[in-house]
């Protein structure tokens, strides 16, 4: 009797979360998936036509899709490298407990609690050559030629600037996780190595990093997933411009679906994005799993 009562109980525990999640997240996602096989004007359901794979075929011929994909991949690659390298560096420094380390780690974490919209607005203001901070600073330093540079309005610097701001925003989180990982490494290992005369670099290279593998995997997967879905920061800072120079897939999707009135095409882009994120995450997890077994 109690056994069956118990088997039912977990259903009641799961039901509310399952219901809200399914109705308000998964069902819309499935509808979106289906609408990627249609073409319509977004205004009248009467205009909806089933077009099969036409939207996906069109994507392959669309130079702006490739442009957005290239920007997206470039963004993820640069941002990931920067966050891992910088994050590891700062985590190692903080782990050595220099004076004031807790004040520093508190400050480093501040950007993560601010909304992307606020951060975007703040940096847009600061980087503007007309009302900003950077332009006057450069001209005060005696490089007036660069002072009028449009950091967010120039093809060469728009995306790199967004990368920089993104790293600024996300670095604290990576530092925090990596630092926590470092603190779980037993001190005995390191002490033993030191007694054997290993250098600081060798300890880091041969003891710390291999033991950090699981944490690094988590950080890499989290950063990659988040960076692929980048949206707010681009919309606020450049709107994908100038002329597609900083357009990533989510922004491209938004502009097709909402600005040009092709919701079907827009969802096809979104589905490509979903598949890419899924594949990359699975590959990363598989690679780290194999590495762990080998080690």
């Amino acid at each position: 009797m109690r056994r069956s009562g118990r088997t039912k109980f977990h259903i009641w525990l799961l039901l509310p979360a399952f219901t809200f999640y399914t109705v308000f997240w998964i069902v819309p996602a499935v509808v979106a998936f289906l609408s990627s096989f249609t073409q319509w004007n977004g205004v009248s359901l009467a205009s909806i036509r089933w077009v099969g794979l036409a939207n996906y075929v069109e994507l392959f011929d669309d130079r702006w899709f490739w442009n957005a994909l290239r920007n997206n991949l470039l963004f993820v690659a640069v941002v990931l490298c920067a966050i891992i390298v910088l994050g590891m560096t700062y985590a190692l420094i903080l782990n050595a407990r220099p004076r004031g380390h807790s004040v520093f780690s508190t400050i480093f974490f501040i950007p993560i609690v601010l909304s992307s919209v606020v951060i975007g607005l703040l940096f847009t203001q600061m980087l503007s050559p007309t009302v900003g901070l950077v332009g006057p600073a450069l001209s005060a330093l005696g490089v007036p030629g660069v002072a009028e540079h449009q950091w967010l309005g120039s093809r060469d610097t728009a995306l790199p600037m967004i990368m920089m701001v993104y790293v600024w925003q996300q670095l604290g989180f990576a530092i925090l996780l990596l630092l926590a990982g470092l603190q779980t490494i037993p001190n005995d290992y390191i002490e033993a190595a030191r007694v054997d005369g290993a250098s600081a670099w060798n300890i880091t290279r041969h003891i710390t990093l291999p033991l950090m593998r699981p944490v690094l995997t988590v950080v890499i997967v989290l950063v990659t997933t988040n960076a692929f879905l980048l949206f707010d920061l681009v919309v606020v800072m450049t709107n994908g411009g100038p002329f597609h120079a900083s357009e990533v897939l989510s922004v491209f999707m938004y502009s097709e679906a909402f600005l040009k009135g092709n919701p079907g095409y827009g969802t096809a882009i979104a589905m490509m994005l979903f598949v890419i994120v899924l594949c990359v995450s699975v590959i990363q997890l598989a690679l780290s799993g194999r590495g762990q077994k080998a080690a």
């Binding site: 999640y21 308000f24 997240w25 998964i26 069902v27 819309p28 996602a29 509808v31 979106a32 609408s35 977004g42 997933t225 879905l229 949206f231 989510s250 999707m253 938004y254 679906a257 919701p263 969802t267 979104a270 589905m271 994005l273 979903f274 994120v277 899924l278 995450s281």
Partner: peptide, 15 residues
Amino acid sequence: GMMIPPQVILVPSFK
């Protein structure tokens, strides 16, 4: 759900 870009479900959710 973590991997679904929220912009994708904007229109169906609204509906």
